[in-house]
């Protein structure tokens, strides 16, 4: 793996793309990595397409530009799976999408031949576990299966730490369950 890993998140305002980018960064920080995470700020409103970024490195991160050539692209919202999400993603890139379609179907519809493509029905998992259409936490589980940039334990620790006070034990566990299910159910090709 390259020293600096850059992840780009695509979602809609309110789906937790910014939070997912941050949870991943914080989990990496807890496992001794250097991190950055930031959203792209445009007109902010619920439902608008937004992008967020995570940088993870073994060395201190000095760069402060936007991410243009990510190693990993995660698409949290199914309706955003368009060729645009491939911008800057290299031949050996990783694309992870929230979809009930198979990776080969996704490859076909986007025309992406390189790297790895993974799909998981994160919305379904979220509805069955968290009981809310919040696909951001399951997408983190899928991400760690496809590319173990941070240990699952670190992610679980962060989620627990962030969620317990805010939403209580039961809902926190539901989110952890969503992460595990997506980890197990993601299809990679």
């Amino acid at each position: 793996m390259k020293n600096l890993v850059e992840v780009r998140w695509h979602g809609r305002g309110g789906q937790g793309a910014k939070s997912a980018a941050q949870f991943l960064a914080e989990a990496a920080l807890d496992s001794g990595k250097y991190i950055q995470s930031f959203p792209e700020y445009g007109p902010e409103r619920a439902g608008a397409p937004i992008r967020a970024f995570t940088r993870i490195s073994d060395k201190a991160i000095n760069i402060h530009s936007g991410v243009t050539n990510p190693e990993v692209v995660v698409v949290i919202d199914t309706t955003l799976i368009t060729p645009q999400v491939l911008d800057g993603l290299g031949e050996d890139g990783i694309l992870i999408v929230n979809s009930s379609e198979s990776p080969s179907e996704i490859r076909k519809s986007l025309g992406y031949k390189g790297g790895k493509v993974a799909s998981v029905d994160a919305t379904k998992i979220a509805l069955e576990t968290v009981k809310l259409p919040m696909p951001n936490t399951p997408m983190l589980g899928a991400l760690l299966k496809v590319t173990p940039i941070v240990p699952m334990k670190a992610l679980e620790g962060r989620i627990r730490n962030k969620f317990l006070k805010k939403i209580g034990e039961e809902k926190t566990n539901a989110n952890l369950e969503a992460i595990k299910r997506a980890y197990n159910e993601v299809n990679v090709e």
Binding site: A25, Y34, F38, P39, Y41, I61
Partner: peptide, 9 residues
């Protein structure tokens, strides 16, 4: 934003 809204360690 670049610094004020980015999470860093």
């Amino acid at each position: 934003f670049i610094t004020s809204h980015a999470v860093e360690g």
